[in-house]
Design a protein around this nucleic acid. Structure first.
Length: 185
DNA sequence: GCGAGGATTAACT
DNA sequence: GTTAATCCTCGCT
C-alpha cells in the first residue's frame, strides 16, 4: 500500500473527497493500532460555498482551511460532538473534506473500548461517532498528516469504491451542490 | 420502527 | 443572543 502525499491533497477539494472513498486511515495511540476504510465524505470549499466555515473569510476557528493542505481540521459542533476534516487545495484557496463514516478493518477491540456499549453497526456511521471511535479530539486540530511527526495518524491509498453523490447533511445553505460522496455497501 | 426534541460549547453578529 | 458540517433518548405506533 502507498501513503497519500502532498500531490493527493493539493488538488480541488471535490476531487479529493471523491477519491478518499476506499482509502485507509491508520490511527496509532499508545501502542494500539486502528485501521479503517473511509466510506463517506463531504467536500467544503469556501468563497463560492455558502455552507462552508470558510465562506465569510478567515476567522480564528477556520484559519486552518486556508493553510497547508494535508492538515487535520477538528472542531466542536452542537456543543458535544467533534468533526474531523482533511484540509485540501493550497495557497490561499480554502477547502476541507469532512470525514463522515468508515468501516473497521482492524483494531476493532480498541474501537469498541472507545465506544463502550455501542453495537458494531453504529460504531462509526456519522462524523461525531467516527471521531469518538478513533479517539480524535480537538487536541489533534492542525495535526500534519503528511509529515506525521508523532505517527498518530496516516492516510493510505485504497481501492476505488463504487459511490453515489447526494446533498450534504445538516446544512441550511448550499444544498444544490451534490458534494457528499457515499460508498455503496 | 418512527419522529420529535434536547443536550451543550464556541464562534460570530 | 443566536446558530451550528450532530447524536441520543424518549414517547408513540
Amino acid at each position: 500500500m502507498e501513503k497519500l502525499g502532498k500531490d493527493f491533497v493539493e488538488r480541488d477539494v471535490v476531487e479529493v473527497a471523491r477519491e478518499l472513498l476506499g482509502c485507509y486511515l491508520v490511527r496509532r495511540m499508545g501502542g494500539e493500532e486502528i485501521v479503517v476504510q473511509l466510506t463517506e465524505t463531504e467536500a467544503y470549499r469556501g468563497g463560492d460555498d455558502p455552507a462552508s466555515h470558510a465562506h465569510r473569510g478567515v476567522t480564528p476557528r477556520n484559519s486552518l482551511m486556508f493553510g497547508e493542505p494535508g492538515r487535520l481540521y477538528v472542531y466542536l459542533i452542537y456543543g458535544m460532538h467533534s468533526c474531523m476534516n482533511v484540509v485540501t487545495n493550497g495557497a490561499g484557496t480554502p477547502g476541507a473534506v469532512l470525514l463522515r463514516a468508515a468501516r473497521p478493518v482492524s483494531g476493532l477491540e480498541s474501537i469498541r473500548s472507545l465506544r463502550p456499549g455501542v453495537p458494531d453497526k453504529t460504531l462509526m456511521n456519522g462524523p461525531g461517532k467516527l471521531c469518538q471511535a478513533l479517539g480524535v479530539t480537538r487536541e489533534l486540530n492542525g495535526y500534519d498528516l503528511l509529515a506525521d511527526p508523532l505517527q498518530e495518524m496516516t492516510l493510505w491509498r485504497g481501492e476505488p469504491l463504487p459511490y453515489r453523490c447526494t446533498e450534504r447533511i445538516g446544512i441550511s445553505k448550499g444544498k444544490d451542490l451534490l458534494w457528499r460522496f457515499l460508498a455503496e455497501a
